[in-house]
Design a protein around this nucleic acid. Structure first.
Length: 582
RNA sequence: GCGCUCGUAGCUCAGCUGGAUAGAGUAUCGGCCUUCGAAGCCGGGUGUCGUAGGUUCGAAUCCUACCGAGCGCGCCA
């Protein structure tokens, strides 16, 4: 529908510009409407600035729009709404355009940073949102022509490695490590935290204030960890080897999850990749007079006049000379802009980091970065019992979630369709189960906290992926029967209200995809696909295809086919698969 | 204290770059499988859109204040 609404908007704007002698290009928006096929509210919006009654503008619009071949009639309603009714013939002839997407991203490169799990920790249910939302945005951007670099910005550097190295030396259980290494690393990390806490209590320090003040009276364990970290940073062979092992075993586990989720990246540039660029980054900030020394540290300050808002300063170098993740992020942004020539950089994380992103984006802007920098954030996930915490160990592993999702979907498949073979049941469980989990996260735009429950995360009825997959499977079944009966898709003949509604929705596909590409909000695509599937379900139960009069069969079959095509491409853009039978 | 994200039906959420009577799912109740797949379809009821002001022809949507929730705020990431 995009070409049409776009064209009509242009025509309307042209007509108004001519009538009133003012350039109104781009000021006339055409939207879908409940009262008609399309509506235009421009008459009221522009009335004041043109010093004309809305009605006079509406008259001009009504005439101009009515001339378009797609338009059957136009009228004015209420205070100046322009209603547009489209011609049935035009809709029937043009429904085939539904699948074509305008290539709005051609020639532009986008770097999208998502998933970004921490090395040496298992992925748990809170990691899934960044992973899935990021991957969907990647697919959508690619579909509209962008060159997309998907980057997994691994948490593979930082103070936790000092702790892990110490814990690994002291308490490693070799057989456990051989069997499930990341689980063992997690155990070591938790053990370290507990022992450190015990030492703090023993020497009479407050357990909570993990301010980790400077010094000498820090618990011995922590002092050891710091020493190991310094050795690691200085390139100590043994520590570097250990660190690499941690990364290897973690990546192997992450890959297993990504493969199950059908998620992929073009590059994996973790925090450590930017290590050798950090000193230069700080120097650059200093040279440009953007950073200054403060209490021994080096900070970037922000003010309202220059940065649009007053924010706390961002520390880019600690007084001990160490760098922080803000430094890494700035270095990362510079790299992405220079090396990839990115015109957009999108980073997907939870909403707790908003301040950090505003700070580091502002610092980048001060450095002259013109690229559009977008922080796509979502609400934190928690359990009914409380916040998910690695240290507390109250994790629900991502793999456990996926296992359970597949199991539940397989049970339902067995119950609902007795024709499926055992291996098909497993396959259906896989595609439907994973689809349900993904859709559950993709379909909500909420930035509020999400409390995890199995039943919500694994629901299989209503507005869920299985509902869409089911509509698709029924269409494929119909297509097979049609082929066997020698019916082939053809021109639309009948045009019952149900069919007309379906055509209007099919034609809106490109509009929705473009919107998602521009706003990075995949849930709009979920909403759309659900609406489409619901309208198809109504069509399916109300009207016959193969049992209808011979002359209307090809057209109805074509509608079904197009619906199936849009459903499968739409789901593919979300990273969700479809099945011929389920 | 300052800031961020929110507050819409019993529950989970759309709608928020202002547009016509505020929508889905779920739950609940009642219909629909000898006719292309019932993980489905059809029908019934529910709202101080947190509260109070303001801007406007028009506000769930924009602005201000307040109430409530979660999160964040210089040497962790």
């Amino acid at each position: 529908m995009l070409p049409l609404t776009h064209e009509l908007g242009l025509r309307g704007a042209e007509a108004l510009s001519r009538a009133f002698g003012v350039d109104l290009t781009g000021k006339v928006q055409i939207d879908r409407s409940q009262k008609a096929d399309l509506q235009c509210a421009a008459a009221m919006q522009l009335a004041k600035s043109l010093k004309q009654p809305p009605r006079a503008l509406a008259e001009v619009l009504v005439k101009a729009l009515a001339e378009h071949p797609a338009v059957r009639s136009t009228d004015i309603a209420g205070p100046g709404f322009v209603n547009v009714h489209l011609a049935d013939g035009w809709l029937k002839d043009n429904v085939g355009q539904a699948l074509s997407l305008r290539q709005i991203g051609v020639g532009q490169t986008v770097v999208i940073d998502y998933s970004s799990p921490n090395v040496a920790k298992p992925m748990h249910i809170a990691h899934i949102r960044s992973t899935i939302i990021g991957d969907a945005i990647k697919r959508v951007l690619r579909a509209v022509g962008y060159t997309v670099i998907a980057d997994n910005h691994l948490g593979d550097w930082g103070t936790q490695f000092g702790k892990l190295i110490v814990a690994h030396r002291k308490w490693l259980d070799e057989s456990a490590f051989a069997h499930s290494p990341v689980q063992e690393l997690l155990r070591l990390y938790i053990m370290f935290t507990e022992q450190e806490k015990a030492q703090k209590i023993a020497i009479g320090k407050k357990v909570d204030g993990d301010a980790d003040e400077d010094d000498d009276d820090a618990p011995p364990l922590l002092q050891e960890a710091r020493a190991e970290l310094v050795k690691l940073q200085q390139g100590d062979k043994e520590n570097v080897a250990l660190w690499k092992t941690f990364i290897d075993v973690s990546m192997r586990e992450f890959e297993r999850v990504y493969s199950r989720l059908d998620v992929s990246f073009d590059v994996v540039l973790g925090e450590s990749f930017y290590n050798d660029k950090l000193a230069n980054t700080v120097q650059l900030l200093l040279d440009k007079g953007l950073a200054e020394e403060s209490e021994g540290a080096i900070v970037v300050r922000f003010d309202k006049a220059r940065d649009g808002e007053a924010m706390a300063p961002l520390i880019v170098q600690k007084k001990d000379g160490g760098f922080l993740y803000g430094t890494t992020d700035i270095a990362g942004m510079l790299y992405r802009v220079e090396h990839w020539r990115a015109s957009r950089v999108i980073i997907v994380t939870d909403d707790r980091q908003q301040l950090h992103f505003r700070q580091f984006f502002a610092a980048c802007r001060q450095l002259g970065v013109r690229t559009s920098m977008e922080h796509v954030f979502f609400g934190l996930m928690r359990l009914a019992e409380g916040t998910i915490s690695t240290r507390e160990g109250n994790l629900i592993g991502l793999e456990a979630l996926l296992d359970e999702a597949e199991r539940r979907a397989a049970v339902v498949a067995r119950e609902c369709n007795s024709e499926l073979t055992d291996s098909e049941v497993l396959e259906v469980g896989r595609v439907v189960g994973i689809g349900a989990v993904k859709y559950n996260d993709l379909s909500k735009d909420r930035t509020t906290l999400v409390t995890f429950t199995w039943d919500k995360a694994l629901s299989l009825t209503g507005n869920t992926a299985p509902y869409l997959q089911y509509a698709y499977a029924r269409i494929q079944s119909l297509m097979k029967k049609a082929a066997a009966a020698g019916v082939v898709p053809g021109a639309l003949v009948s045009f019952e209200p149900t069919e007309r509604v379906l055509v209007m929705t099919l034609l809106a596909f490109d509009d929705v995809v473009e919107q998602v590409a521009l706003t990075s909000r995949p849930h709009a695509l979920c909403e759309y696909l659900f609406e489409l599937a619901a309208q198809f379900s109504t069509f399916w139960s109300e009207l016959s295809v193969l049992k209808a009069e011979p002359e209307v069969r090809p057209g109805r079959l074509r509608l079904a086919q197009l619906t199936g095509d849009v459903l499968s491409s739409g789901l593919d853009l979300l990273g969700i698969g479809v099945l011929e039978r389920m």
